[in-house]
Every structure is written in C-alpha cells, then in structure tokens.
Simulated scan of single mutants.
Amino acid sequence: MAEAIKNRYEFVILFDVENGNPNGDPDAGNMPRIDSETGYGIVTDVCLKRKIRNYVLTAREGEPGYDIYIHESVPLNVSDKRAYEYLGVQEADAKKLKKNDPDIDRKIRDFMCQNFYDIRAFGAVMTTFVKAALNCGQVRGPVQLGFARSIDPIMPQEVTITRVAITTEADAEKKGTEMGRKYVVPYALYRAEGYISANLARKSTGFSEDDLSLLWEAIINMFEHDHSAARGKMAVRELVVFRHDSELGNAPSHKLFDTISVKRRDGVDYPRSYGDYEVTVDTAAVPEGVTCTRMV
C-alpha cells in the first residue's frame, strides 16, 4: 500500500453552466437547486462527488485499487461481500471470527480502503449487514467538499418543448405532438470549496500522492465525460490549490479562501459567459508555509 500524503490541502473550484440544469431538485420538479431566500444557485457536494467517481471509473476502469464503492449499478452489499471473500469466511461465521480475532475490524477497513478509491478519498458508511456480527464499519475520508454556490443569483427558465413521438396509439389518433417542460439556467458561475486532511489520510484510509494526483485530474475533467442535453454546457474554469508545508496545516482555511476574489467586470449587469467575470488570487496575502497553485 502506498504511503499516505503528508501535507494538508485546501482547494477552490470554479465551474460554470450555460443553458443547462447543473443539479436538479427532485422536491421542486427537478428545477435547478436554489437558495429560496437569496436566489443563489446551489450544487450539492454529493453531485460533485458523483462526477469525480464517474471520472475515476472511466479513467481507471479495471485497475486494481480503483473500484468505486458508491456505484449506480452495484448494490453496496455486493461490494461489502468482497471483504468476506477476502477473509475466506461465510457471513454466518462472522460472530465467531470477530471473537477469535480482535483485529478483524482493522483488516476489513484496510481491505475496503485498498480496493475502493472513493472510500480512500471520501470515506463511507459500510454497515449494511445489519444482522451480522461483522460489517465493514465506517471510514471518515480525508477529502471533503462543501456545497457549490453561484457567484450571482440565478434565474432558472422553464422551457416548453414538443415531441412528435406519441406515447400510445390512442393518443396518436387525437394529436400529432406532445408537450413537455425542462428547466435551464442561461448562465451561472459556481464556486465550491474543499479540504484534504493529511492526518485522516495517515490514520484512516491511506490516501496517497497518486490518489491526490488522480483527484486533481478528476476535478479538472469531471464534466468532460458527463455531457447531456439536460446539463447543457458545463466546464471547470479554475482549480486553485493551497498546499501546507505540514500535516496539520500552517494557516486557517478561511483565510486562504478569502484570498480568491470573483466579481463581475465593470458594466456587466447580466453575465452570460466566463469572460464576464474577473478572478484574482491575492498571492501576497497567502501566509508563510502555504503554497498557492492555479492548476487551471
């Protein structure tokens, strides 16, 4: 198993959407998520993690150690059972095994971390065998993401669409088209902030330098293999990374985030492209012991 990272990181992602729905809300008819008090758009951390997972599946498919635990087409119990197979025991023997081997929980955790990239990165709750004496436990991951929030309030548009493919023969005798609706955001720029704990990587999952490089790669490309008519045109515009010289860090994360400023250019009332914004990083304000890198 590769050695865990030794440095703390924070990072900021700027991504935009043009004529698409970046993250639909099922409680609101799948309209783009929005802060009802301020009108700012929201994209959940779960949505962003899904795209990172999908990229890893695409880029490292079949490679040992890069399976994905939270997978659309694979039940969690199927992945959990691999730990039983690794130990060579049946679920019914779990209670006896745990009694005879007090270190079994660590072995199970290590197996899951070594084989599933998203567990090494984000952690997981793997207590799906509720009736068994042995389960895969819980792992707190070193990589954490917050909700993304739009730089300006958004104004979703409801667009009426038609189709000529009628659902039933009975309906086809009465009409030649059917109506539908979809929500789009004409344009919005979103900002998400993330954290990487070297301390948790060392103590918990073993998240390594190779894993870190893959994470940056996945973030930069997370929309490139995820295009659809519903999401419109989406792209990562900035990835700013703060690297601390130590495991526990050399500066508070909020001070680092405050060095990044995003504002509309003079004279722009309704932004419709990334060029309508000005992004600046005050490198002079970055504290000693922290290195700032603009990776995009």
Rank of each mutant, 00 (worst) to 15 (best):
C113I: 07
G65Q: 04
E18I: 09
V12F: 00
I52D: 08
L48E: 11
N21E: 09
V89Y: 03
I108G: 06
Y69S: 08
D35S: 02
Y69C: 05
P64G: 04
Y117L: 04
E18W: 01
R60M: 14
F15M: 01
V56Y: 10
K51Y: 15
P75D: 11
I104N: 01
G41Y: 01
K6W: 00
K96I: 13
G24S: 12
N30D: 14
Y86T: 03
G24K: 09
V56S: 09
V74N: 04
K49R: 14
K99I: 12
H71F: 02
D35R: 05
Y40F: 15
N100Q: 10
V56P: 10
M31C: 09
L57N: 11
A121W: 12
K99R: 12
A94Q: 06
V12L: 02
A59T: 09
D103W: 06
D101G: 03
A4M: 02
N54F: 06
D105W: 07
I13Q: 01
I108H: 03
C47L: 04
P32C: 14
K49C: 13
S36I: 14
L48K: 05
I42A: 10
D27N: 08
A121E: 14
G88E: 06
K96M: 08
R120T: 07
K96N: 10
R82Q: 09
Y86M: 13
P64Y: 04
N23F: 15
Q114A: 15
D16P: 01
F15T: 00
R120Q: 01
V78F: 00
Q114Y: 05
R33S: 05
N21P: 11
G62Y: 14
L14D: 00
D27P: 01
R109L: 10
H71Q: 02
M112K: 10
N19R: 12
D80V: 05
Y69M: 14
R106Y: 13
C113T: 09
V74Y: 02
D25Q: 07
D101E: 09
R50G: 12
K6P: 00
D105G: 02
G24Y: 09
S73T: 11
D80C: 08
Y55H: 14
A28N: 06
N100R: 00
N100F: 03
C113P: 06
I119S: 05
R120P: 01
